[in-house]
Design a protein around this nucleic acid. Sequence first.
RNA 1: GGGCGAGUAGCUCAAUGGCAGAGCAGUGGCCUUUUAAGCCAUUUGUUGAGAGUUCGAUCCUCUCCUCGCUCACCA
Length: 511
Amino acid sequence: MEQEKTALEQNRLEKLNRLLAAGIQPYPTRAEVTHRSVDAIADFENREKQTPPGTEPEKVAVTLAGRLRSMRPMGKISFAHIEDGYGRIQIFFRINDLGQEQMDLFANEFDLGDYIQVTGYLFRTKTGEITLYVQSFIMLAKSILPLPAAKDEVVDGEVIRHATLNDPEVRYRQRYADLAVNPAVRHIFKIRAETIKALRQFLDERDFIEVETPILQPLYGGAAARPFTTHHNQLKQDLYLRISFELYLKRLLVGGFERVYEIGRDFRNEGVSYKHNPEFTQLEYYQAYADYLKIMDQTEQMVAYTAMQVLGKTKITYDGHEIELAPPWKRVEMREGIIEATGVDIALHTNAESLKAAMQAHGLKFNPNATRGKLIDGMLNEFLEPNFIQPTFVYNYPRDISPLAKSIPGDPQTVERFEGYIGGMELCNAFTELNDPLDQEARFLEMGRAYAADDEENNPLDEDYLRAMSYGMPPNGGFGMGVDRLVMLLTGNHSIREVILFPHLRSRGEE
RNA sequence: GGGCGAGUAGCUCAAUGGCAGAGCAGUGGCCUUUUAAGCCAUUUGUUGAGAGUUCGAUCCUCUCCUCGCUCACCA
């Protein structure tokens, strides 16, 4: 497993050993920091403003820590830049103050990537850059492995990276290195954190309570997906990693909570793609006495609120398109949308055979084994979804692909369900939840007939869920959204891997 | 799972059926306000792995691995 050390690594190990030999700790236990880089600079600028022109501001002791990002040793002086979690700042070494030994120590034993602690005071260089005049410094952590970015340059405050790390494989497998050298990547994950914070704020302000439900479940359900399975050794029990939170969250409505939400990880044992990762972050909420139209309104507000909180605007650019996230979003009734796109009126075809004949007559391809609902869903995915660049709700779904949604009064084949699309991508899914235990049981049994017995997507019948519903579940609206996809939209990324810190990759065949 | 493309130095990339290169990084030296610092000198390779064709393969062929794109799958 241990790989041969490169010359660069050998070199740094030798430096480390020389430090040890000189009695210098390469990894001291404690650090002292008085300022963040950006705060030190801001303080200095403030003091400059209060100082008469032509005179230097008073020297104030500052201790900073950070990672060495550039070094320009020039004999009797040296310049370098360090980067902390908030920005970067130039530091300046001069033999007059530090002595030959310290100058050599810095020039000979410090490398790019080392963590350093520097104490001194701020001044402006000839070129006007606010810089720390170093009076003392210590190693905080020696870097043995060189970071994979060669060099960078600061032009007008913008860091321009030359020959930056961009091999996606290395970037995802060694995300720490990616983050360390690519500030834009760090920015994505700050946006991600702010997105989740904004979603919480939105729901908290509306009296939702955040809950946590089991990830390890004896039965899986709430979505059509194949699960991951695992096993509890001592209990000798097979368990599934959840594919959704739905059935547990609705049990909580039975328990008397009127508004609950959960933000967490779902696991689906399916193919990976630019918009699918085996584990992904989902937001689900359930709201008593709401229906899907109420949820639809709330969805527009929530997404617009989040964009406003995170980006300060509701207009985003995605895939070259200007997208306006502010309400109202376009709303397309599914039947009408399909008629417009394909000429087929699904209302006229109440079974799969009839619908297939109609699709054939219109020259559409279809899976001959599909149910009516699957056929309709197929038309939606193929003919409608890619065109939903601007935020669009598609509503009123076929019942047989929506076993947990309530039918539209007077139209038993259609349920009160919608999905939200942005940028040609499904973002969320919601419905008026089915709360009739007798109907729910019938739906579960229907599913059992519709799918082959060995089809893992056919969720096992959850009798405990039916029992919960039998105690009485308030009518409610439920909502689920892929948080990763929202972050993709807000950060302009077209790959879900760019917005997941450690995306799933195939294991390397090493060892 | 199918199709297409890619894999060369630590990083970014060249190149050719005939000794594998550049910039940056590294190393040694000079340099007291630089900032992709500069100047001089210099090191670095299982060309993803394996096999085949060939006098000779990084290049052509095959298998495998990994990544990317795409299709399928994904209520």
